[in-house]
Each structure stands twice: as structure tokens, then as C-alpha cells.
């Protein structure tokens, strides 16, 4: 395609799009630093009071802690379990590759609200009554993030031609575990980091499973925000900005990692990479 700037059309389109996407965030930011803002277009005074309140409110702090804990645990356990599974089916058990791919696509057809209906019925009572606990969130978040993790890891394995690298390692006397840990893992690290960042961002923003499966019994930041937004707008705006900053950091790191990864097939436009990696579903 022609990369020349031609006319005003593109500039107008991008400006409008940026406004549509930017104004809600900007307004929320203004609201979060506004002292009085009742009937004027711009705030009448400015303050950091709401942020101070946010980080001194034990309820919010505990929620931040819980959100980080469950999102971090999802990233850690997800990578720990899905990386070997993706590798083993890729390298040693090609017969199970189809089943694995199916499991990795299925969550796309199971948005939280659907998954929750099955999970509630299974885990509210019975032999494993973990509904309402941290654990059901952890395991169901892993399923929600399974597609991103699996795709990111599998793409990385293919990009480095892990099959041949592992054979090379084995021909040099390494057993399978050594080949996996010393050769495969270091070389797919960018893919693992991407998968982790995306999983973190998605887990942090998860609402439906949390609301339906644990509700008030394990209050994450999203739940606290949902309760607060109908009561205290200013505090809510501070929480929204905190959430926005966290998501922004994850996304920026994700782009940074994606651009730093050398691709076999020569140069890839950063946008193309972003597009293929960041198809995180909205809620």
C-alpha cells in the first residue's frame, strides 16, 4: 500500500476515533482529580483527595491485593500448566494435537456468563464445594485465558522450530526435561511473557465470573468498583484510573515484548503483531 499522506481524510478519521476512545478516559481522569464539579463544564477545583482515599481505604486496598493475587496466580499457574501441555502435544503427542486445539478454542464459545452456569451447578455443593472461594476463580480464569496462552506458546514454538531444536538437544545427550528447560523455555520466553501480560490484563478486568461465582465472598477490585460506582463517583473514578494505568502498562509491555522478538519471516509491522496478539475479548 501507498504510505504517502494523502489529503485530510485519514487525519479526520483518526482524530474522531481518538476522541471517541479518549474522551471517556480523559473525563474520568478529570473527575478523579476534581474537587467540586457539579454544574460546570470543567471542574471548579482540583484535588488528589480521591486517590489518597483510595489508597487508604482498607476495603479498596484489600480488593487491590485480592485482584493482584488472583491475577498473578492465574498467570503463574496457567503458564506452569499450559506451557508443558502445549509443548508435549506439539513435540511428542501429535495425536492429541487436535483435542488440545479444540480445548483452546472452546473458551471463545464459552463467555463467562455461560461458563458460570455450569460451574455454579458443579461446585456449589457436591464433593468439591469451592464456589465462593479464591480457587474457583483461579481455575476458571485459567480456562478463560487458555486461548491466549495456548496460541501465544504454540506460535512461539513454531517460530523457533522447537521440534528440531529439541531433537538437536536430545542428540547432544539432553533428556527431555533438560531439553525443555534449557533449550525450549529460554527461547520462547518472549511468548511466555506476552501470554502472561495478556492473561494478567484479562484477569484483572474479569467481572462476570467473579460476580456470579464468588460475589461478595471474594471482593476483587472490579466488584468493589461496581459497588462503589453507584455510591461514590469520585472514589470510583480514582479506581477506574488505577485500573486504566495497570491495563496500559500491561499493553505497553506487551507491545514492547512483541517488537523485541525477532521473527523468522523478516520484518513484521508492529501493528500486525499487535493485531494478532491482542484480540482480548471485551466484557
Amino acid at each position: 500500500m501507498n504510505k504517502k499522506v494523502s489529503g485530510r481524510g485519514p487525519a479526520i478519521i483518526l482524530t474522531l476515533a481518538a476522541l471517541y476512545l479518549g474522551v471517556p478516559i480523559l473525563a474520568t481522569f478529570m473527575f478523579s482529580v476534581a474537587g467540586r464539579w457539579d454544574s460546570t463544564v470543567l471542574p471548579e477545583s482540583y484535588t488528589f483527595h480521591w486517590y489518597v482515599r483510595m489508597i487508604t481505604d482498607p476495603l479498596v486496598l484489600a480488593a487491590i491485593g485480592r485482584s493482584f493475587l488472583v491475577s498473578g496466580a492465574t498467570v503463574a499457574l496457567g503458564l506452569l500448566v499450559i506451557t508443558p501441555a502445549a509443548f508435549i502435544t506439539y513435540q511428542y503427542l501429535p495425536a492429541l494435537r487436535g483435542a488440545m486445539r479444540f480445548l483452546a478454542v472452546l473458551p471463545f464459545a464459552l463467555p463467562g456468563v455461560i461458563l458460570a452456569v455450569g460451574l455454579i451447578q458443579l461446585y456449589s455443593s457436591g464433593p468439591l464445594p469451592i464456589a465462593g472461594t479464591f480457587w474457583i476463580l483461579l481455575f476458571s480464569y485459567i480456562i478463560v485465558c487458555l486461548p491466549y496462552m495456548f496460541n501465544s506458546i504454540t506460535n512461539s514454538l513454531q517460530a523457533i522450530d522447537a521440534r528440531t531444536l529439541v531433537e538437536a538437544a536430545e542428540s547432544l545427550g539432553a533428556n527431555r526435561t533438560a531439553a525443555f528447560i534449557k533449550v525450549v523455555v529460554p527461547n520462547i520466553k518472549p511468548g511466555l511473557i506476552s501470554a502472561g501480560l495478556l492473561t494478567f490484563a484479562v484477569s484483572l478486568g474479569e467481572f462476570v465470573l467473579t460476580n456470579m461465582l464468588v460475589g461478595g465472598r471474594y471482593q476483587t477490585l472490579q466488584l468493589v468498583l461496581e459497588k462503589a460506582m453507584h455510591v461514590d463517583g469520585h472514589l470510583s473514578s480514582a479506581i477506574v484510573m488505577l485500573y486504566f494505568v495497570l491495563v496500559a502498562i500491561s499493553s505497553l509491555l506487551l507491545i514492547f515484548v512483541a517488537q523485541g522478538t525477532p521473527r523468522r519471516s523478516g520484518k513484521v509491522d508492529p501493528g500486525t503483531q499487535a493485531g494478532s496478539q491482542m484480540t482480548g475479548y471485551a466484557q
Partner: peptide, 13 residues
């Protein structure tokens, strides 16, 4: 890329 993950409750707010 940042906005694509900005959704749900914070967006409604």
C-alpha cells in the same frame, strides 16, 4: 491496543 482491554465495569463508569 490499550483501549482494547479497557472494557466492562470501568468503561460503563
Amino acid at each position: 491496543s490499550i483501549c482494547v482491554n479497557f472494557a466492562g465495569v470501568p468503561l460503563a463508569f
